[in-house]
C-alpha cells in the first residue's frame, strides 16, 4: 500500500521546494481552515442567517415596498389573529401537509417494496419513476393545471365520456374543497419518487438473512414486514419524513402555479399568502409576519418527526447523529 502510494505521489511530481512565505501560509492549518470555510460561511451568513434575523425584524415593522418601516411591535401578528384569510391559510397548510405526507409515504413505501422485488428492467423503471421529482415543479404543475382544466380535463373526459360515471365535467379548481384535493393529489404525485427511492435505498441495506431466519421461524409476510422491515427502515424514514414534512409545509410553487390561492383565497398556504401580501401587495412587514409565523410550526414538525419517529434509535443507546 505505502509503496504504491509513494510511487504514485512521485509520479504526480511532488518535489520539496524551498518554502516561500506563501507555501508556509498555506500550510498553516488555522489559516487554511479559515480560507476553506470563508466562501460557504460568507454566503450562508449574508444570504441565510442575516435574512432570517432581518425577517423577524421586518415582521415587527410596517415596511412597505419602497418605504422603510417603523417598529410597531407585535401589531402585525395581532392583526393576523383577526384575519380569517390567514387562519384559513394556517388550516390549509396543516391539512395539506398532513394528508399529502401520509399519501406520499403510504404510496412511496408501497412503490419501494414493489421495486425491491427482482423484476426485469429494474434500473430503467427506477429511472423513469424518478422523473416527476427531476422535472421542474412549476412545469409539471402546469401540466396538472391542464389536467384539471374545467372544460378540457382529460380526467373528466375519461370519467364522463369513456366510463360514463358522471354526466358533467368536474370543476376541479372552481370550488374550495375540490381545489384543495386537486393540489394534494398533485403534491403526492410529485413526492412519491423521492420517498420511494430513499426508502428503497433503506430496504436494500436490510440483510436478506434476517428474512430467511424469519421464514424458518414460520413468520408470515405481514409479520416479516412489521417486525423486520419497519424497524430497520425507521432511521432513514425519520430523515425522509422530516425533510418531506418541512418542504411540504413550506410549499409554494405547486399552489402558486395551479390555483394562485384561489378560488377566493381558499387554497392559500402560508407561503403563498406571505408572497401575495408582501410582493404584489407591497406589504413587506405583514408578509414577513406570515412567513415568521411558519417558523414555530416548522420547528415543531421537525422535532416531532425526527424524535418521534427516530426515537427507537437513541432509545437503544446508539449514537444520535
Amino acid at each position: 500500500m505505502d509503496a504504491t502510494v509513494d510511487v504514485g505521489i512521485r509520479h504526480l511530481g511532488f518535489t520539496r521546494k524551498p518554502d516561500g512565505w506563501v507555501t508556509r501560509l498555506f500550510d498553516n492549518k488555522a489559516f487554511l481552515v479559515f480560507l476553506c470555510l470563508l466562501p460557504s460561511m460568507g454566503l450562508l451568513l449574508v444570504f441565510l442567517t442575516y435574512p432570517l434575523g432581518l425577517g423577524i425584524w421586518l415582521s415587527m415593522t410596517d415596511t412597505t415596498i419602497g418605504q422603510p418601516g417603523q417598529f410597531i411591535g407585535l401589531d402585525n401578528f395581532i392583526d393576523l389573529m383577526d384575519d380569517p384569510v390567514f387562519w384559513m391559510s394556517v388550516t390549509n397548510t396543516i391539512f395539506y401537509t398532513t394528508v399529502a405526507t401520509v399519501g406520499k409515504f403510504a404510496l412511496g413505501l408501497w412503490l419501494a417494496l414493489l421495486l425491491n422485488h427482482h423484476i426485469p428492467f429494474k434500473a430503467f423503471i427506477r429511472a423513469i419513476v424518478l422523473l416527476p421529482w427531476i422535472v421542474p415543479t412549476v412545469l409539471s404543475a402546469i401540466a396538472w393545471w391542464w389536467i384539471y382544466s374545467p372544460q378540457f380535463s382529460i380526467v373528466s373526459y375519461v370519467i364522463v365520456d369513456v366510463l360514463h360515471l358522471r354526466s358533467t365535467y368536474i370543476n376541479f379548481l372552481g370550488s374550495p374543497w375540490p381545489a384543495r384535493w386537486s393540489l394534494i393529489v398533485a403534491n403526492i404525485w410529485r413526492g412519491i419518487p423521492f420517498v420511494a427511492i430513499t426508502l428503497l435505498a433503506g430496504l436494500q441495506t436490510i440483510s436478506p438473512s434476517l428474512y430467511e431466519a424469519a421464514l424458518l421461524d414460520g413468520a408470515s409476510g405481514w409479520q416479516k414486514f412489521r417486525r423486520i422491515t419497519v424497524p430497520l427502515l425507521m432511521p432513514i424514514l425519520a430523515v425522509a419524513l422530516t425533510l418531506s414534512v418541512l418542504f411540504t409545509f413550506s410549499d409554494f410553487q405547486l399552489v402558486y402555479a395551479i390555483t394562485r390561492g384561489g378560488p377566493f383565497n381558499t387554497t392559500h398556504l402560508m407561503a403563498t399568502l406571505a408572497f401575495q401580501r408582501a410582493i404584489p401587495g407591497a406589504q413587506l412587514g405583514e408578509g414577513a409576519a406570515i412567513a415568521v409565523s411558519m417558523i414555530p410550526f416548522l420547528i415543531a414538525a421537525t422535532l416531532v418527526c425526527f424524535f418521534g419517529v427516530g426515537r427507537r434509535k437513541w432509545q437503544q443507546g446508539e449514537a444520535n447523529d
Binding site: 444570504f47 441565510l48 409545509f249
Partner: peptide, 24 residues
C-alpha cells in the same frame, strides 16, 4: 459544529427567506 450548522441551514426553507432577501 460547523457540520451541524450547515445541516441546519439546509432545513431553512426559501419561503421564509424570500421577503427579507428581497429587501437585502
Amino acid at each position: 459544529h460547523f457540520g451541524l450548522a450547515i445541516y441546519l441551514a439546509y432545513l431553512v426553507p426559501p419561503s421564509i427567506l424570500f421577503i427579507p432577501l428581497a429587501t437585502l
